[in-house]
Structure formats: structure tokens, C-alpha cells
Write a protein that binds this DNA or RNA. Structure first.
Lengths: 343, 343
DNA sequence: CTGTTAGCGCTTTCAA
DNA sequence: TTGAAAGCGCTAACAG
């Protein structure tokens, strides 16, 4: 027994395929009697629409694609989860791909999704290979950039102001009395979130007249272990550091582990901060001071913006979510604050 | 300028649409000269195939769907990541949905994906709503069940033997001298991985003649905080517990945090174990004793099995991966071992 | 090796 | 309100 198609339903209901199609897509344009007969036939035949045929005829796929760097970082996994949930509610399905922080791979994936005929695209960050913009120029597609808010973005973006948030965090550390900082970061290249965060540190430090040498910055990959490595190299270069700013919680967790390993008490001997506020952050030993990146809300909003655009909303909205500073117990007044003029 | 279609390319290349289609799909069945001309035309026209049309005509979507409970648990996010990577390599795209541990929602999603015309389905676990089997009976679809290995499964499954692994872990604890256990688990209902793990604990304990009352089992939801709650209720009911078996690392991390909160030294005063071996596990304080669930390998393999089945491999393979016990520093000999006959 | 052609299953004018 | 019919863009017989 092969799957029933529209003609079968039409025959069973004593109607035309057009009418059946109508009760499926525009039930209001059909008389109640007809609707009833057709619905009965639909049900009795276990009718299942063919997506490809529908897509071909209607030139819409009811599919949205998201490209994130990786799903192996909770903040993105959580975002995809939220995206999927919201999109599903609207009858859309979500395609996912990972760029692995490779701008060229991202561009290839964008191309593949365009071919694939998706109705919309969710991208991570505002910076992409120029080729991406070019492709989207040729086949204009509703799209939204997520996670970072960029006032100047030509497209719709919903995210946080990473730079500002990091300025705030740095200032908090400065206020605590810290003057010797180390920063542990993932590669800044092609990553506007990360580079904005590092810029935020520079901003705040420069404003306070506190120097930050190149040797006080460790750029490492993305794993927890890399956080440990970063702390190690930072401390090896300058054991007098009193505060380590990690550009995300993952790195911070690694740094915390390394500090423990070295017998360095956090926060008494060393303050460590993260960024993102993963569920984990609150459960570390000690609980991590960090900045909350509201991934779920952010992506839910992004999905809504995208949906609106797909259904024809003309405006390009840029939405900034706030990124609160969450002070917990991984930060404190430095053990031996150098006596300096207040900032 | 609207997108070029096959007929345009054919005209430009002075060939028939069939030939163009051939160089696209079966380049080997075409003469080199023809291929060259067509490829030139393809390139000069920036030809992009229409996925829906292709799917409709070929009755294949080159799309695979995966349903996982959530992406908010690293082990699943990592699996989806691996799935996507392997599938992408084979020219397939991945659709993702989350069941949120709701068997009925999972069934609805299966239905939606069948409608959607996916070529294959990746499911989590071996247990599903009966309706799922029924639907897959009606529209037979290559599918693979992941994470748990079940000898008796009628379908292809690739996973670990959760029960056996947990028996092993429990025996290890028993050998250490523990006799008073608590187990922290997520809901067992509709979840064969979890229930198998709990069964494994029962097996090993029963074999050793060590009792496990209902009060020694705390069933909580899935978050880290729930792990803390579980430990709290377990200890409140019986402060003499010396070992807490958490059915996954997430719960264990919560338990660890709670132990710390209560001033209970791990492992000296209390041993705690996890399951999964998330990246995190090794970086906890103390590093977590756990069982490794090789999510990436597992899902890569699952993707390959599925691909093989889609391309026509007839056999149903069941693949068991080994789940190693990873002993770290969250477990030790109990502080006050009761003197009992050796197990 | 190449071209002709008949669909794939559905949506959507256009008439009735 | 309903139906007939013309595609949507592509693949895969089939014939040459």
C-alpha cells in the first residue's frame, strides 16, 4: 500500500484536487460541507502531504537553517535548541550546520543552504566572509545575525553588546583594586564576539591607565583544557597577575582547574572571571563571576524576527539584549593591591 | 535576473536537459567534451539546482533527521555535531528536533519528519512510543537508534550497554568497600538509557547482597541544580551514605557542588560518581570518576550505518561500543567501612 | 553517448 | 464555491 496522494483523497471525497488543496492550505475559502467531506477522506486515507511537491509548487520550503560555530559549546547548543523550539511552533523545521569557526566553511554552508532553498538563515555573529554577503545579495534571503549586537549592521541582528559588557566586567575588577591582568581568549580572527570582548577589556584598562602588554594575553583554542593552558602560560610569564579575565566560561573553568592544580586559591590569590553564564558557572568551586549571555531568549527573539521577515515584515530590526554582570565568588579584592591612585 | 534553470543551462551548452542532469548526477555517463561544455555553462550561469524539484523527481531528499531529548545536555549536542559532520561529508543535510524527554512529542516529530520526506531517521534510545514503530511500519524508512545498545532491537542500533557499564561501576565501588549507596537519577520513565543504568546498579548490589531501598534513590529532573537537590534529599534521609551514584555527569556535578556546600569532603567523606565523561568531568574539583560514553564516535558510526542503509545496504547491524570506567578522584575507600564479609 | 518525454505531487490561476 | 489544467524544475526511463 503506497502513500495516498491528493488525487486519491479527491476521489474518495468526491471533490477536485484543487478543493482538497484548499482545505489543506486555505480552509476558509471552502464551504463547510466540502471541508467536512475532505477532512474525513484525509483522515481515512492517512494522507501525508509531500513536502517536495509542495515546496516545488509553492516555492517555499518552510525550512530555516542555522549555522553555528559548534554545538560542543553549551551556549550555542542552547541557542539552537531555542531556535528549533520557536520555529517548530510556527511550523518550520530547522537545518543545522557547524562552521567550526572556519569562515570559509561557513560560506560553503551558506551556499549549500541557499541551494537547499531554505526560507531563512540564522547566522552567528555579524562578521562573515565577504562572499556571504555577495551570495545573499544575489539571492536575497531573510536572515538574522545572532549573539552580537551591532549598531551598524545592515541586516537584522539580535544579540548583546559584547564590548560594553566586557568593559563593565573589567571596570568591576578595577574597582576591586586589580591592576595586573591576564586575559585568556579564543582566537579573535573572524570572530566578532571574541574580538569585541577583548576590545572591551582594552577599553576599560586604557581608560584607567592600566597597561596590558601582549604578554598578558593568551590566545588558545576553545576547550576547557585550553583554559588551563592559557592560565599556565599567563602565570609563567608573570606570576604577579591578580586577575584573569577569560573571554568565556569554558576557558574560565579550565583556568579554575589549573589554579586549583597549582594550589592557587581563588579568589584570594587570584580572581578569575568568565563570560556567558552557563548553567555550570554557578556550580563551580568557587562559583564563577561572569556576564550572562541570554542565549535562549536571544535565539527565540531571533527566530521571531526571522519569521516576521519571512512572512513579509519589511523592517530591519536590531535588538540589543542586556548582558548582566553576575558577581559570584571567583573574584575578590587582590591579595596585595599595589597602592595606586584610585581609578 | 531570475535564477537559471536546467533548460537555460542546456540551451547555453547546446545540449539537452538530460545531458545537463547527467553531468550533475552521473558525470561518468557523459563524454568528456559534453561534460566540459556543460560545466562551463553551469558556471557561467551560476546555476543552482532546485532542491525541491530534485527531490520530487528523484524521490530522495538527501536529508536526514535526528531527534534528541535536548541539546542542552552536552552529550547530545556533541552527538548531533558528529552526526552533522559525517552526514555533511556525504552530501546530506541534517534536520534536528528535540523531544524534551516527551515520548509523545517525539512521536509527533517522527511523523513530521516522515511527511517532510527525510531519507533517514536518527532516534535516541531504543524505546519509543508504539506509534513510532507503527508509523515506520507504514512508511519504512532507514533508521538508527543511538546511545543505547540493545541486543534484542529489531532495528539498527549503535550505542553502549548502559546496564553493563553501570554494573561495572557499582562493582568498583563495592570493591572499594562501600555498602551504603545513594543513587541520583533522572526520570526513568520512557528512557531506556536511564532505566538501564539504574538496573545496572540494582544488579550489582543484589549480586553482592547489598540492599538498596527506595529511599536510597532520588529521582529528579535533568539540570545541575537537580543533582544538588538529589544529594540533599538522599543525605537527609540517610546521612550515613558513603557513595552516591549519579546516573550522569550533570547530576554528579550538582551533587559535587552540594557536597562542597555542606562541607562534605569528596571523596574522603563521600564518594560521588557520574556517567558520560563530559569534557568537564576531568576538570571538576575533584575530577570525577565516571563512565565514558563515546558520543562522537557513536554518532559518527550511527551516521555511517544510516548512510549505508539509505544507499541500500540490507543488513541490520547492531553495534556495541565499549563504555570504559574512568577512575578519577571523586571516589575512594569509605571513611568508616562497615566490617562485612567480602563481596 | 545523447535527446525526448513522461511524470514526481502539489499549488494556483482562471473559468465556470 | 468549485473544478480544470497549467506548470513548478528536475530525474529517469526509453529510444535512438
Amino acid at each position: 500500500m503506497t502513500a495516498a496522494k491528493l488525487t486519491d483523497v479527491a476521489r474518495a471525497a468526491g471533490a477536485s484536487v484543487a478543493s482538497v488543496s484548499r482545505v489543506l492550505n486555505h480552509p476558509d475559502r471552502v464551504s463547510p460541507g466540502m471541508r467536512q467531506r475532505v477532512e474525513a477522506a484525509l483522515a481515512s486515507l492517512d494522507y501525508v502531504p509531500n513536502w517536495a511537491a509542495r515546496g516545488l509548487a509553492s516555492r517555499r520550503s518552510r525550512t530555516v537553517a542555522a549555522i553555528v560555530p559548534t554545538l560542543d559549546i553549551a551556549i550555542f547548543a542552547k541557542g539552537v535548541q531555542a531556535l528549533q523550539a520557536r520555529l517548530e511552533k510556527a511550523g518550520y523545521t530547522l537545518l543545522v550546520a557547524c562552521s567550526e569557526y572556519d569562515a570559509e566553511k561557513e560560506a560553503r554552508e551558506v551556499r549549500a543552504f541557499i541551494e537547499r532553498g531554505v526560507d531563512g538563515l540564522v547566522l552567528t555573529g555579524n562578521w562573515h566572509e565577504p562572499e556571504v554577503a555577495a551570495m545573499l545579495e544575489v539571492s536575497p534571503l531573510p536572515r538574522v545575525h545572532t549573539y552580537s549586537y551591532d549598531q551598524g549592521s545592515a541586516d537584522c541582528c539580535v544579540g548583546i553588546d559584547n564590548r560594553k559588557a566586557m568593559q563593565r566586567l573589567t571596570r568591576y575588577l578595577l574597582d576591586l583594586g586589580h591592576r595586573r591582568f591576564g586575559v585568556a581568549t579564543s582566537p579573535q580572527r573572524d570572530n566578532d564576539r571574541v574580538s569585541a570582548r577583548v576590545a572591551g577589556v582594552h577599553d576599560a584598562l586604557a581608560a584607567a591607565g592600566v597597561p596590558l602588554e601582549a604578554t598578558q594575553i593568551a590566545e588558545v583554542p576553545h576547550s576547557i583544557a585550553d583554559g588551563s593552558i592559557a592560565l599556565r602560560s599567563l602565570l609563567d610569564r608573570d606570576p604577579r597577575l591578580t586577575a584573569i579575565i577569560c573571554i568565556n566560561d569554558t576557558l574560565a573553568i579550565g583556568a579554575l582547574a589549573e589554579a586549583r592544580e597549582r594550589g592557587l586559591a581563588v579568589p584570594d590569590a587570584l580572581s578569575i572571571t568568565g563570560f556567558d553564564d552557563l548553567d555550570l558557572a554557578a556550580h563551580m568551586a568557587p562559583p564563577l563571576t561572569t556576564v550572562r549571555c541570554p542565549a535562549s531568549e536571544l535565539c527565540t527573539l531571533a527566530a521571531e524576527q526571522l519569521l516576521a521577515r519571512i512572512e513579509g515584515a519589511p523592517t530591519v530590526e536590531r535588538v540589543e539584549l542586556k548582558a548582566d554582570l553576575i558577581v559570584r565568588r571567583s573574584t575578590a579584592v587582590p591579595a596585595h593591591p599595589r597602592t595606586l591612585a584610585p581609578v
